[in-house]
């Protein structure tokens, strides 16, 4: 599909993997986040290329949402705390860039 954007994503969870536990979710997205304000060595402007929206769902529930701008550094990293639900499920990270291309990454969470 022409509208998909594949980027490397690292999703990790720090804390006890059990129901109702408070954990820290760490999300690292590999993206150059080109601002569009820069020029290359020959003086030509480098076109803007940024991720615009990032969401994280746990099952169907939205647990994290971010709107990014040109002020964000390359390879953006997000940490947020989250209380794990009673039922283990799937965590889904979705992203959309400023051209409307999008992608997602799914990770099944297992409780110990």
């Amino acid at each position: 599909m022409a509208n998909t954007l594949d980027i490397p994503v690292r999703l990790s969870i720090s804390g006890p993997m059990r129901a109702n536990a408070e954990v820290e979710v760490r999300l690292l997205l590999g993206h150059s986040m080109e601002t569009g304000f820069r020029h290359d060595s020959s003086g030509a402007p480098v076109p803007k290329d940024i991720l615009q929206f990032v969401t994280v769902h746990m099952g169907d529930v939205l647990i994290f949402e971010a709107e990014l701008g040109t002020g964000m550094a390359a390879n953006p990293m997000f940490f947020f705390s989250f209380t794990l639900p009673a039922q283990a499920g799937e965590m889904v990270v979705r992203w959309t860039d400023q051209q409307g291309r999008n992608g997602e990454m799914r990770r099944a969470l297992l409780y110990r």
């Binding site: 490397p8 690292r10 760490r26 690292l28 590999g30």
Partner: peptide, 12 residues
């Protein structure tokens, strides 16, 4: 390893 951006390149 979870937050080190270098790992993105190593994995690629």
């Amino acid at each position: 390893q979870d937050v080190n951006p270098v790992t993105l390149w190593v994995e690629k």
